[in-house]
Amino acid sequence: MEKVADIASDIGEYIRQQRSNAKISLRQLSKLAGVSNPYLSQIERGVRKPSAEILQQIAKGLRISAEALYVQAGILDLPTGGPVGDAIRADAELTERQKQVLLDVYESFRRENSASRPVAESAATPKTTAPGAEDPEDTTKESA
């Protein structure tokens, strides 16, 4: 039960931090998210753990990805992406929206490169000739 309280506290703190970064008052966010002011206050203080639906509404009000809130709330596992993705997610100087855009661009480059890799590798693979066989492109041998 202690773990649930920690998660509620963590998500509340995270929401408060995002609200503060966006320079939105508690009252403004409650209107944007369509949740009552007291309920949002309880979430931020860690008294209540919001449902996925409420988190989605709050994310919409904060203009951040719902996935970011789901990860913070323990609903979703932190996506893998290696050290670059981890560094982007950990950067406190970036907003959630900026982080998501960077991650999307990075992943699109990775997908593009992995899709083109088999073609590039086959072109770069050195040609091998069976042992003892003559290479028809070998012009160093003199013909008799």
Score class of each variant (00 low, 15 high):
S20L: 11
R89I: 00
G132S: 04
K99L: 08
K141Q: 10
V71Y: 10
G46W: 05
A52D: 11
A87T: 15
D138N: 15
P50N: 06
A59G: 01
I58H: 04
Q72H: 08
R63V: 07
A66D: 09
R117V: 05
N37I: 03
A87C: 03
S51Q: 09
N113P: 02
S36K: 00
K23P: 03
V105N: 07
Y39E: 03
S20F: 03
A59R: 03
A33E: 02
V35L: 05
Q100S: 14
L69D: 06
V35A: 01
E93A: 14
T140M: 11
R110D: 08
V35C: 06
D135P: 06
K31M: 10
L55R: 04
L78A: 12
D135T: 04
A90I: 00
N21E: 13
A124I: 02
R89H: 02
A123M: 14
P131C: 01
N21Y: 09
A22W: 00
R117E: 13
Q57K: 14
T80M: 11
P136D: 00
I15G: 03
L76V: 00
S41Q: 09
D135S: 07
P50A: 07
A120I: 15
L103I: 07
A68W: 00
R19C: 02
E44P: 04
E44K: 05
S122V: 09
S114R: 14
Q100R: 14
E67D: 14
K49E: 10
K127Y: 11
Q72L: 01
T95I: 04
N21L: 14
L40C: 02
E96W: 00
E107C: 01
L62K: 05
Q98Y: 03
Q98K: 10
D135W: 06
Y70L: 14
G81D: 14
F109A: 11
K141Y: 12
S122Q: 13
Y106R: 08
T139M: 12
I75L: 15
K141V: 15
A92G: 05
A73Y: 05
Q100P: 04
P50K: 08
L55P: 03
S108L: 10
A73K: 02
L103A: 01
Y106L: 13
Q56T: 13
A22C: 03
E137P: 01
Y70G: 00
S25L: 05
V47F: 11
E67K: 11
Q56P: 02
V101T: 15
E121G: 04
R16T: 00
K49C: 08
R97E: 15
A133R: 10
P126T: 04
K99P: 07
A124F: 10
S51L: 00
Y70H: 11
D86I: 07
E67A: 13
Q100E: 15
E44T: 06
L103C: 01
P50M: 08
S20R: 13
A124D: 10
P83K: 14
V101L: 12
G34A: 03
E107M: 06
L29K: 03
G81A: 10
S116W: 05
Y106P: 01
A52K: 15
V119Y: 11
L55S: 02
R97A: 13
I75R: 05
N37Y: 09
L76S: 12
S20N: 11
T80R: 15
L40I: 01
